[in-house]
Design a protein around this nucleic acid. Sequence first.
DNA 1: TAGTTCACTTGCGAATTGCAAGCAGTCTTC
DNA 2: GAAGACTGCTTGCAATTCGCAAGTGAACTA
Lengths: 150, 150
Amino acid sequence: MPVKKKPQRRSSCPVNVSLEIFGDRWSLLIIRDLMLRSYRTYKEFLSSDEGIATNILAERLQRLEAAGILTTSRDADDGRKVVYRLTEKGIDLAPILVELVLWSARHEETGAPPAAIRKMRAKRKQFLAEIRNNWEEGGTAVFIPGSRSA
Amino acid sequence: MPVKKKPQRRSSCPVNVSLEIFGDRWSLLIIRDLMLRSYRTYKEFLSSDEGIATNILAERLQRLEAAGILTTSRDADDGRKVVYRLTEKGIDLAPILVELVLWSARHEETGAPPAAIRKMRAKRKQFLAEIRNNWEEGGTAVFIPGSRSA
DNA sequence: TAGTTCACTTGCGAATTGCAAGCAGTCTTC
DNA sequence: GAAGACTGCTTGCAATTCGCAAGTGAACTA
């Protein structure tokens, strides 16, 4: 009997589908670190200001890999390190992150530098192109800094 | 001693700020129902396909009101009903929902009608204008249907 | 080869979630 | 105008998830 007990979705609404993949307090922060800060390793994610727990981080990285949003590989120079990278599916989340940033900057008090926000809003397409470009080149650009910056 | 024990944020990063407000599996579904389906009452939210629990719904509605994303009022014709409406801050979440929908439609299997998605992508600004317009008029338009549709 | 670093696991108490029931006000119907 | 139904919640409780601390093993470094 080929019964499908697959962890079926709550609904097929596109909003719900995306929430079931990254609708929690941590997933998009990891994606932010990968996309806007060019973080690549477990340790770097741990260093972010929000202070994610090690078990939560490990579980989220697994889920995001299973969802096809990121990939893992060993560092060629240091066999201890695991290198995480966004897939095309992952970099396509850029518009969502940009809108999150613009909404927060408009309606909440954030540490985002106003000049950066203005550029992001006025030259949205260009900003998205820069993010994608940096990703394609495997770059290390920082679009939104962490820690003592913003 | 004016000590501030306020529930301080994990960080002031704009991505984090927005996640602390609506970064869970349910908040954006309520906002979708308000914005894209013109739902207005507790019972209507309960009727959505995802099947939110009554206690969770009540708690999320409170949080969203406290965050200034929606307002409540009594129904003039039926004193039992509470009418929920998005604020300006709430309707400003539209671009985020649109990007969620576009991403899901592109990368996952969803029940969204392809024609609607194409329009949403090709005429994004117009679509956002229609959403806002409907909101300003207190309208009842349905942009993304539920239940047996999508 | 001893010590350190890195990427995780594991244990466990606390908080959050989901489900079922219950419960006040407010209609509606007769 | 009394009985019932409807609406918007609250309460209890079991189950899941979270967050913190500590531990583990493989890979580097001195």
